[in-house]
Amino acid sequence: MTYCIGLLLKKGLVFMSDTRTNAGIDNISTFKKMHSWSKPGDRVITMMTAGNLATTQAIVSILDERTKAPSERNPSIFEAPSMFQVARLVGETIREEIQTNAGVGETADSAFNATIILGGQIKGAPPRLFMIYPEGNFVEASDETPFFQIGETKYGRPILVRVFDSEMSFEDATKLMLVSFDSTLKANMSVGLPLDLQVYQTDDLEILQSHRIDADDDYYNLISTGWGDALKQAFLSLPEFTFESGAKE
Rank of each mutant, 00 (worst) to 15 (best):
M1T: 15
T2R: 10
C4W: 14
L7M: 09
L9E: 02
F15Y: 12
D18H: 15
R20S: 15
T21F: 01
D26A: 03
N27F: 06
F31Y: 13
F31P: 00
K32L: 08
M34N: 13
H35C: 01
H35D: 01
S38F: 09
T49S: 10
V60L: 00
I62M: 03
L63H: 04
E65G: 13
E65Y: 15
E65F: 14
K68A: 15
P70T: 05
E72L: 10
P75F: 08
S76A: 08
P81I: 04
F84R: 11
Q85P: 03
V90M: 13
E92H: 01
T93F: 09
I98C: 01
I98E: 01
Q99H: 13
Q99K: 12
T100Y: 15
G103R: 05
V104D: 14
V104P: 04
V104K: 14
G105K: 11
T107E: 12
A108D: 11
A108H: 06
D109S: 15
D109T: 14
S110K: 09
A111M: 05
P127K: 08
R128N: 07
R128Q: 13
M131K: 14
I132T: 11
I132D: 08
P134S: 05
P134I: 10
E135R: 02
S142I: 00
D143I: 00
D143W: 00
D143L: 07
E144M: 13
Q149R: 08
G156F: 14
G156C: 14
G156R: 10
G156M: 14
P158K: 05
L160Y: 09
V161L: 08
V161H: 02
S166K: 11
S166N: 11
F170N: 06
A173H: 10
A173D: 05
T174H: 09
T174D: 02
K175R: 15
M177T: 02
M177N: 05
F181R: 12
D182C: 11
T184N: 12
L185C: 13
K186S: 08
P194C: 06
Y200D: 01
Q201C: 07
T202K: 15
D203S: 10
D204V: 03
L205R: 09
R212P: 03
D216E: 15
Y219N: 06
Y220R: 04
T225I: 02
G226N: 01
L231D: 09
K232V: 03
S237K: 06
E244A: 12
S245C: 12
G246Y: 03
K248L: 12
E249P: 06
